[in-house]
Protein backbone atom coordinates (compact mmCIF):
# COMPACT_ATOMS: atom_id res chain seq x y z
CA UNK A 1 0.00 0.00 0.00
CA UNK A 2 1.02 3.56 -0.34
CA UNK A 3 -0.75 6.60 1.05
CA UNK A 4 -1.95 9.13 -1.49
CA UNK A 5 0.08 12.28 -0.94
CA UNK A 6 -0.91 15.56 -2.51
CA UNK A 7 1.89 18.14 -2.24
CA UNK A 8 -0.56 21.03 -2.14
CA UNK A 9 -2.87 19.55 0.51
CA UNK A 10 -0.84 18.57 3.60
CA UNK A 11 -2.36 15.89 5.79
CA UNK A 12 -1.57 14.10 9.02
CA UNK A 13 -0.07 10.71 8.18
CA UNK A 14 -0.13 9.13 11.62
CA UNK A 15 -0.81 10.37 15.12
CA UNK A 16 -0.31 8.04 18.07
CA UNK A 17 0.96 8.33 21.62
CA UNK A 18 4.34 7.19 20.34
CA UNK A 19 4.86 9.51 17.42
CA UNK A 20 3.10 11.91 15.10
CA UNK A 21 3.86 12.18 11.39
CA UNK A 22 2.45 15.12 9.48
CA UNK A 23 3.04 16.39 5.99
CA UNK A 24 4.14 20.02 6.10
CA UNK A 25 3.00 22.91 3.95
CA UNK A 26 5.15 23.50 0.85
CA UNK A 27 8.32 25.56 1.33
CA UNK A 28 10.70 27.21 -1.08
CA UNK A 29 13.80 25.10 -1.78
CA UNK A 30 16.83 25.89 -3.88
CA UNK A 31 19.72 23.57 -4.61
CA UNK A 32 22.90 25.64 -4.51
CA UNK A 33 26.17 24.29 -5.89
CA UNK A 34 29.46 26.14 -5.74
CA UNK A 35 33.10 25.80 -4.80
CA UNK A 36 35.96 28.12 -4.02
CA UNK A 37 35.69 31.34 -2.05
CA UNK A 38 32.06 31.51 -0.99
CA UNK A 39 32.24 35.10 0.22
CA UNK A 40 30.21 36.50 -2.67
CA UNK A 41 27.44 33.98 -2.05
CA UNK A 42 27.52 34.54 1.69
CA UNK A 43 27.11 38.23 1.03
CA UNK A 44 24.22 37.69 -1.34
CA UNK A 45 22.45 35.36 1.07
CA UNK A 46 23.20 37.28 4.25
CA UNK A 47 24.46 34.15 5.96
CA UNK A 48 27.65 32.13 6.05
CA UNK A 49 27.24 28.89 4.17
CA UNK A 50 28.32 26.05 6.48
CA UNK A 51 31.10 23.98 4.95
CA UNK A 52 30.96 20.87 7.13
CA UNK A 53 28.64 18.28 5.63
CA UNK A 54 25.60 17.75 7.83
CA UNK A 55 25.54 21.19 9.42
CA UNK A 56 23.29 24.17 8.79
CA UNK A 57 23.07 27.92 9.25
CA UNK A 58 20.06 30.16 9.52
CA UNK A 59 19.42 33.84 8.97
CA UNK A 60 15.84 34.97 9.46
CA UNK A 61 13.60 32.79 7.29
CA UNK A 62 16.49 31.51 5.23
CA UNK A 63 18.35 28.38 6.17
CA UNK A 64 21.25 26.67 4.42
CA UNK A 65 22.20 23.05 5.02
CA UNK A 66 25.40 21.53 3.68
CA UNK A 67 24.68 18.18 2.01
CA UNK A 68 27.91 17.67 0.09
CA UNK A 69 31.31 19.29 -0.33
CA UNK A 70 29.89 21.72 -2.90
CA UNK A 71 26.19 21.37 -2.23
CA UNK A 72 23.65 23.21 -0.07
CA UNK A 73 19.92 23.13 0.15
CA UNK A 74 18.43 26.53 0.90
CA UNK A 75 14.98 26.65 2.44
CA UNK A 76 12.79 29.71 2.70
CA UNK A 77 9.15 30.73 2.46
CA UNK A 78 7.84 30.10 -1.05
CA UNK A 79 7.42 33.82 -1.65
CA UNK A 80 11.10 34.49 -1.00
CA UNK A 81 12.43 32.15 -3.70
CA UNK A 82 12.54 34.68 -6.52
CA UNK A 83 14.33 37.20 -4.32
CA UNK A 84 17.00 34.72 -3.23
CA UNK A 85 17.47 33.59 -6.83
CA UNK A 86 17.92 37.18 -7.90
CA UNK A 87 20.40 37.89 -5.10
CA UNK A 88 22.47 34.86 -6.07
CA UNK A 89 22.30 35.78 -9.74
CA UNK A 90 23.93 39.06 -8.78
CA UNK A 91 26.87 37.12 -7.38
CA UNK A 92 27.26 34.85 -10.41
CA UNK A 93 30.04 36.83 -12.02
CA UNK A 94 31.98 36.96 -8.74
CA UNK A 95 31.56 33.22 -8.16
CA UNK A 96 29.96 31.14 -10.88
CA UNK A 97 27.62 28.59 -9.31
CA UNK A 98 24.42 26.67 -9.89
CA UNK A 99 21.03 27.49 -8.42
CA UNK A 100 18.14 25.20 -9.26
CA UNK A 101 14.64 25.54 -7.95
CA UNK A 102 13.56 22.24 -6.41
CA UNK A 103 10.62 23.58 -4.38
CA UNK A 104 8.16 21.36 -6.21
CA UNK A 105 10.38 18.25 -6.24
CA UNK A 106 9.69 16.93 -2.76
CA UNK A 107 7.40 16.99 0.22
CA UNK A 108 8.37 17.24 3.88
CA UNK A 109 7.14 15.08 6.74
CA UNK A 110 7.42 16.33 10.29
CA UNK A 111 8.06 13.52 12.78
CA UNK A 112 7.61 14.30 16.47
CA UNK A 113 6.93 12.42 19.68
CA UNK A 114 8.66 10.33 22.34
CA UNK A 115 9.49 7.54 19.87
CA UNK A 116 10.39 9.71 16.88
CA UNK A 117 13.98 8.49 16.91
CA UNK A 118 12.86 4.86 17.13
CA UNK A 119 10.57 5.42 14.16
CA UNK A 120 13.58 6.49 12.14
CA UNK A 121 15.28 3.18 12.98
CA UNK A 122 12.68 1.17 11.08
CA UNK A 123 14.13 2.56 7.87
CA UNK A 124 17.49 4.24 8.45
CA UNK A 125 20.55 1.98 8.47
CA UNK A 126 22.72 4.76 9.94
CA UNK A 127 22.99 5.22 13.70
CA UNK A 128 20.55 7.94 14.69
CA UNK A 129 22.76 8.76 17.66
CA UNK A 130 25.29 10.11 15.15
CA UNK A 131 22.83 12.89 14.29
CA UNK A 132 22.61 15.38 17.10
CA UNK A 133 20.14 18.20 17.40
CA UNK A 134 20.50 20.55 14.44
CA UNK A 135 22.11 17.94 12.20
CA UNK A 136 20.95 17.30 8.66
CA UNK A 137 21.93 14.51 6.32
CA UNK A 138 21.01 13.05 3.00
CA UNK A 139 20.52 9.39 3.85
CA UNK A 140 18.45 6.32 3.17
CA UNK A 141 15.05 5.59 4.66
CA UNK A 142 13.71 2.21 3.63
CA UNK A 143 14.46 2.23 -0.11
CA UNK A 144 14.18 6.00 -0.64
CA UNK A 145 16.87 8.65 -0.57
CA UNK A 146 15.73 11.38 1.82
CA UNK A 147 17.08 14.48 3.48
CA UNK A 148 16.69 14.08 7.21
CA UNK A 149 16.73 17.03 9.59
CA UNK A 150 17.02 16.62 13.33
CA UNK A 151 15.31 19.56 14.96
CA UNK A 152 15.28 18.18 18.51
CA UNK A 153 15.73 15.04 20.56
CA UNK A 154 12.22 13.98 19.57
CA UNK A 155 11.73 15.98 16.39
CA UNK A 156 12.74 15.27 12.81
CA UNK A 157 11.85 16.48 9.35
CA UNK A 158 12.20 14.30 6.28
CA UNK A 159 12.25 15.57 2.69
CA UNK A 160 11.11 12.93 0.19
CA UNK A 161 10.78 13.16 -3.59
CA UNK A 162 7.13 13.34 -4.61
CA UNK A 163 6.88 9.92 -6.20
CA UNK A 164 8.42 8.17 -3.20
CA UNK A 165 6.35 10.09 -0.65
CA UNK A 166 3.33 7.80 -0.65
CA UNK A 167 5.43 4.71 -0.07
CA UNK A 168 7.50 6.33 2.65
CA UNK A 169 4.37 7.75 4.30
CA UNK A 170 2.87 4.27 4.42
CA UNK A 171 5.94 2.85 6.12
CA UNK A 172 5.90 5.73 8.62
CA UNK A 173 2.21 5.27 9.30
CA UNK A 174 2.65 1.55 9.92
CA UNK A 175 5.52 2.40 12.24
CA UNK A 176 3.45 4.95 14.17
CA UNK A 177 0.90 2.27 15.02
CA UNK A 178 3.53 -0.39 15.72
CA UNK A 179 5.41 1.84 18.14
CA UNK A 180 2.23 2.84 19.91
CA UNK A 181 1.45 -0.86 20.37
CA UNK A 182 5.00 -1.37 21.71
CA UNK A 183 4.43 1.41 24.21
CA UNK A 184 1.08 -0.04 25.26
CA UNK A 185 2.59 -3.51 25.81
CA UNK A 186 5.51 -2.10 27.76
CA UNK A 187 2.94 -0.33 29.95
Amino acid sequence: MSISISPLNPTVIGDTAAVRVAQMAPVGRLSLRARGDLAALNGALGLTLPTKIGTRATAGDLSAACLGPDEWVLTMPEGDVAGVEAALAGAYDALPHSVTNISAREVTFEITGPMAETLMTIGCPRDMASMGEGAVRRTLFDTATVVLWRDGADAFRMDVWNSFAGFVAQTLETGCRELAADMARAG
Binding site: M1, S2, S4, P7, I122, D142, T143, A144, N162, S163, F164, G166, F167, Q170, T171, T174
Partner: peptide, 18 residues
Protein backbone atom coordinates in the same frame (compact mmCIF):
# COMPACT_ATOMS: atom_id res chain seq x y z
CA UNK B 1 9.47 -7.13 6.91
CA UNK B 2 7.27 -4.26 5.79
CA UNK B 3 7.86 -5.11 2.13
CA UNK B 4 5.00 -7.39 1.23
CA UNK B 5 1.84 -7.30 -0.84
CA UNK B 6 1.41 -3.96 -2.55
CA UNK B 7 4.06 -2.49 -0.26
CA UNK B 8 6.60 -4.94 -1.66
CA UNK B 9 8.57 -2.20 -3.35
CA UNK B 10 8.12 1.44 -4.10
CA UNK B 11 5.72 2.24 -6.95
CA UNK B 12 6.45 5.72 -8.18
CA UNK B 13 3.42 7.61 -9.43
CA UNK B 14 3.14 10.95 -11.20
CA UNK B 15 0.89 13.79 -10.11
CA UNK B 16 -1.40 12.95 -13.04
CA UNK B 17 -1.62 9.25 -12.12
CA UNK B 18 -4.83 9.70 -10.05
Amino acid sequence: GYHRGDHFEVTRKTQIDP
